[in-house]
């Protein structure tokens, strides 16, 4: 029998490997868990960990963990529209006028020029609970259906929808939240090409 087969070689080796695997698995769990929580201010690479503010400022985990979780845990990991709709937050509409209300507009706009991707549905309603008409019209978008030269390149560059999405609102990696309307004839065109 080969010396390497002896239990004195196999047993410690097995133990060592068991340790490595257990360590790696628990590290996975801890790190993956970390990805679903908020980075502490002292470690976020912008707050000065030595500055006096670090002890005063509210930690994102303390401010945000009571709010509904974003379905894909991106951005602030908060579903801001749900938070507003279910009343877990009630941000002020005005600091100058009492009982002012948002001018909510229920108008969906379709952007059809999306090549192979599903079409983009822009919901005014979900935007006007947060924003004024003039936050978008006409500084970001002309008030005319099809009147803006929007394309994905410009959006990724921070223009049009990309002004907010990617910076403050949910990030651009969530393609299907914008590209939400399947093209009815999509499969037909595919068949034709074959």
């Amino acid at each position: 029998m080969d010396k390497r087969d002896s239990v004195f070689v196999r047993l410690p080796l097995t133990c060592a490997m068991f340790c490595v695997v257990t360590f790696a698995l628990s590290a996975t769990i801890v790190w993956a868990g970390g990805a679903f929580t908020w980075v502490p201010l002292a470690k976020d690479k912008i707050h000065d960990p030595e500055g006096p503010a670090i002890k005063i400022l509210q930690e994102p985990s303390a401010g945000l963990n009571m709010l509904p979780l974003d379905p894909s845990k991106v951005g602030n990991k908060v579903d801001w529209l749900k938070a507003l709709a279910e009343g877990s937050i009630n941000p002020l509409v005005s600091i100058y006028e009492d009982d002012m209300e948002m001018e909510v507009l229920d108008l969906d706009i379709m952007f059809p020029k999306t090549l192979e991707m599903p079409m983009v549905l822009f919901p005014h309603k979900k935007h006007t609970v947060w924003l004024d008409c003039e936050n978008c019209h006409d500084s970001i978008f002309k008030m005319k259906k099809g009147g803006n030269p929007v394309d994905m390149y410009k959006i990724l560059n921070g223009e049009f929808c990309g002004k907010c999405h990617g910076a403050v609102a949910f990030p651009l990696t969530e393609c299907l939240r914008c590209h939400s309307v399947a093209r009815k004839n999509a499969s037909v065109t595919h068949k034709k090409r074959k």
Binding site: I46, H47, Q58, P60, G63, L64, L67, N76, V78, W80, I89, P91, L92, V93, S94, I95, Y96, M102, V129, W130, L131, D132, E134, N135, S139, K163, C164, V168
Partner: peptide
């Protein structure tokens, strides 16, 4: 200076700052 949107948007709609106070985006 660090300005955090998450902290302020819990308390104010976007319009408060970007219309009333007048911060450009």
């Amino acid at each position: 200076v660090i300005f955090s949107h998450w902290f302020h948007r819990i308390r104010f709609r976007c319009r408060v700052c970007h219309t009333e106070v007048g911060f450009i985006m």
